[in-house]
Design a protein around this nucleic acid. Structure first.
Length: 281
DNA sequence: CCCCAGTCCTGCGGGC
DNA sequence: TGCCCGCAGGACTGGG
């Protein structure tokens, strides 16, 4: 599932379209159900056609195609969405095709098997509504240790659950939350308001370290093969996973315990009960 | 404030 | 062998 490292990998993979002009916009070929596009597909098509792409940005798990004179095309891949400049996994679930002319790739695609993704064309003046602090906190790669603890230290939620709150810090999803807490040696059920100063520091450092390393490996492609980079190739970070989806297997760090799976807020959490002691400060 | 369950959606794998 | 059901979870909503 695309989290910050996967979306950042997509962003880097499609940067070649910057400078190109959108010649043609096509939504939802074939018989797949339409994904959420706002305003309407027709309105988005009309506004984008003939306009140049001037930047590809990212905030948290959202990819932002900046189109001069049209606004920001905010793409949320959610569970299975891919932004591609190469052949998609199949034609059936292709949701958006932008034919381009100019310096780089001939087309920019959004493919989404499950169709939970969204595409929004946001006018420059409305950007705060969709990317402002009410919806999206500081990007996980930009946030400072002080900002991180300020956002969360009064919460009574479990730290693992809180890390998924995009208003507190943007970009961490279910997979990397477990990885980050294992590197930080913090138990996932520890309440935010019980974290110590050193734990906030370790957590902040672990967020940067895990996400940056995952970007170097071009993200995680799980056994379902869903996530691919912009060229429709596997990521490599799945082989580096410390705990995620490794329940019952030996912890690679301590070698002395099996990875445990629990459920928090209806999502799987993985941790090592030896490395991540509940009482440890 | 926070939590939980339900919603969207498809493909896969376990169980019978 | 085949079918059904549950599960995967990101973002959001409504009720408590």
């Amino acid at each position: 599932m695309p989290e910050l490292p996967e979306v950042e990998t997509m962003r880097r993979g499609v940067l070649g379209v910057v400078g190109s002009t959108i010649e043609r916009v096509e939504f939802c070929r074939g018989k797949c159900k339409p994904i959420q596009v706002s305003p309407s597909p027709a309105a988005v098509r009309k506004k984008l056609t003939g306009r140049p792409i001037v930047d590809i940005a990212r905030r948290g798990k959202r990819l932002i195609v900046v189109v001069a004179g049209a606004g920001h095309l905010v793409i949320e891949p959610r569970m299975t969405g891919l932004v591609l400049v190469a052949e998609p996994p199949n034609q059936e679930h292709l949701r958006l095709r932008m034919e381009l002319s100019g310096v780089g790739e001939p087309e920019l695609l959004f493919w989404d098997r499950r169709g939970l993704g969204t595409v929004r064309l946001v006018a420059d003046g409305d950007l705060e509504t969709f990317l402002g602090p009410d919806r999206l906190g500081p990007d996980a790669l930009e946030i400072s240790a002080e900002q991180l603890s300020a956002q969360l230290k009064r919460s009574r939620r479990a730290i693992k659950v809180a890390l998924l709150d995009q208003r507190a810090v943007a970009g961490i999803g279910n997979l990397y939350a477990s990885e980050i807490l294992h590197l930080a040696t913090i138990h996932p059920e520890r309440r935010c308001d019980r974290l110590t100063g050193p734990q906030w520091d370790r957590l902040h450092a672990a967020i940067g370290a895990v996400l940056r390393q995952a970007i170097q490996y071009e993200g995680s492609t799980l056994s379902d093969g869903t996530y691919r980079n912009a060229l429709n190739q596997d990521g490599g970070y799945q082989n580096q996973h410390r705990v995620y989806d490794r329940a019952g297997q030996t912890c690679r760090t301590c070698g002395g315990a099996e990875v445990t799976r629990i459920v928090q807020a209806q999502r799987s959490t993985f941790y090592c009960g030896n490395c991540q002691r509940k009482g440890r400060k």
